[in-house]
Simulated scan of single mutants.
Amino acid sequence: MPTDTKPVESTVLDRLEQCSTSAIADTNHGSVTTLASAIESIHTDGTVAGPVRTVALDPAALSAPVQTLDTARKDEVVVVDAEDSTDEAIWGELLSTYATATDVRGMVTNGAVRDVSGIRDLGFPVFARAVTPRGPSGSEEAERNGQVTVGGALITPGDVLVGDDSGVVVIERAAVEDVTAAAEAIAETERDVDRLIGEGRSLEQAFEDAGM
Rank of each mutant, 00 (worst) to 15 (best):
T3G: 14
T5I: 14
P7L: 03
S10R: 08
T11C: 01
T11W: 13
V12F: 02
L13S: 04
C19Y: 13
T21C: 15
S22P: 12
I24S: 09
T27F: 07
N28A: 03
N28E: 08
N28Q: 07
H29F: 12
G30H: 01
V32W: 00
V32G: 01
T34D: 02
I39F: 06
S41F: 09
T44K: 12
D45Q: 08
D45P: 03
G46N: 10
G46M: 03
V48Q: 05
A49S: 11
A49H: 09
P51Q: 05
V52H: 00
R53P: 15
A56P: 15
L57C: 06
P59L: 15
A60Q: 12
A60V: 08
A61C: 08
S63E: 00
S63N: 04
P65G: 04
P65C: 10
P65N: 10
P65E: 00
P65R: 06
Q67W: 05
R73F: 05
K74F: 11
D75T: 05
E76V: 04
V77E: 10
V77T: 01
V78H: 12
V78S: 01
V80P: 02
A82I: 10
E83D: 09
D84F: 09
T86E: 03
E88C: 05
E88Y: 11
E88D: 14
A89W: 05
A89I: 04
G92I: 09
G92K: 08
L95M: 14
S96V: 02
T100I: 06
T100P: 01
A101V: 09
T102L: 02
D103F: 01
V104M: 13
V108R: 01
T109Y: 13
N110L: 10
G111S: 10
G111R: 02
A112W: 03
V113G: 00
R114P: 08
D115N: 15
V116Q: 00
V116R: 09
S117W: 03
I119T: 02
R120V: 10
D121S: 15
P125R: 00
P125V: 03
V126Y: 00
V126P: 03
V126C: 05
F127S: 00
A130E: 08
P133N: 06
R134H: 07
G138A: 05
G138N: 07
G138T: 06
E141V: 03
A142L: 15
R144E: 11
R144T: 10
R144F: 04
R144K: 11
G146V: 12
Q147H: 12
V148R: 11
V148H: 09
I155G: 06
G158E: 02
G158F: 00
L161A: 04
D164T: 13
D164W: 14
D165Y: 11
D165N: 14
V168D: 04
V168N: 04
V169Q: 08
V170L: 01
I171E: 01
R173V: 06
A175K: 02
E177I: 08
D178H: 11
T180H: 07
A181W: 11
E184H: 02
A185C: 05
A185E: 15
A185G: 13
A185S: 13
A187L: 14
T189H: 09
R191P: 03
D194F: 02
I197E: 15
G198H: 07
E199G: 02
S202H: 07
Q205W: 02
A206V: 05
A206D: 04
E208N: 08
